[in-house]
Computed example of a mutant assay.
Amino acid sequence: MIYHILNTTSTYPARFVDFLVKYRQAFDLDRHFFIFTGTDLSRFSSLSSVRYDVSPHLHPGLFRYFLRSKTGDRFIIHGLQDPRLYLILSCETYARRSVWSIWGGDLYFGLQPQTSFKYKLYEALRKKAIRCLGGIVCVVPGDIALAQKKYGHTGKTFYAAYPTTLVCSSDLPASSKKTLFIQVGNSADDSNRHIEVFRMLSRYASEDIRIYCPLSYGQGWGGKKNEYVKQVVEQGYMLFGKKFYPLLDFMPPEEYATYLASLDVLVFFHDRQQGLGNLFPMLMMAKKVFLKSTTTTYRYLHDLGVVIYDSFEIPSLDFITFASCREEDKQKNKDIISHELAEENLVRQWLQVCNAEL
Rank of each mutant, 00 (worst) to 15 (best):
I144D: 05
V167P: 03
S191Y: 03
L87F: 11
S187A: 11
Q148E: 14
T115N: 15
L166M: 07
F109Y: 15
P113Q: 10
T115R: 15
V99A: 00
G135Q: 07
A147Y: 01
D189F: 05
R84T: 06
S191P: 03
Y159C: 08
L111V: 03
I76R: 00
Y159H: 14
P173K: 11
D190W: 13
T157H: 07
V140A: 06
I88V: 15
T154R: 14
F75K: 02
L107R: 07
V137L: 03
S98Y: 00
K118I: 11
K120L: 12
I102Y: 01
K128L: 11
G185C: 11
E92D: 13
I136S: 04
T93M: 10
S116P: 04
S191K: 12
L111R: 13
R199K: 15
Y122P: 01
G142A: 06
Y159S: 13
V137S: 02
G104W: 09
Y159T: 11
P83Y: 00
K128A: 09
N192P: 07
Y108S: 12
K177I: 08
Q183A: 12
Y119A: 12
K120F: 04
L125P: 02
A188R: 10
I102S: 00
W100I: 00
L89W: 01
L166G: 01
V99G: 01
L107P: 09
A129S: 12
G142F: 02
V139L: 10
L89H: 01
V184L: 10
G104P: 11
H194L: 13
A124Q: 06
H194T: 12
I195G: 08
K127E: 12
E196M: 10
Y159V: 07
A188F: 09
D171K: 14
S116H: 07
R193Y: 14
Q148T: 01
Y86H: 12
T154C: 11
T179C: 13
T154Q: 14
K118S: 12
H78P: 05
R97H: 11
I88R: 08
T164P: 11
L111H: 08
Y122V: 00
A124C: 10
R126D: 00
C132K: 15
C91Q: 08
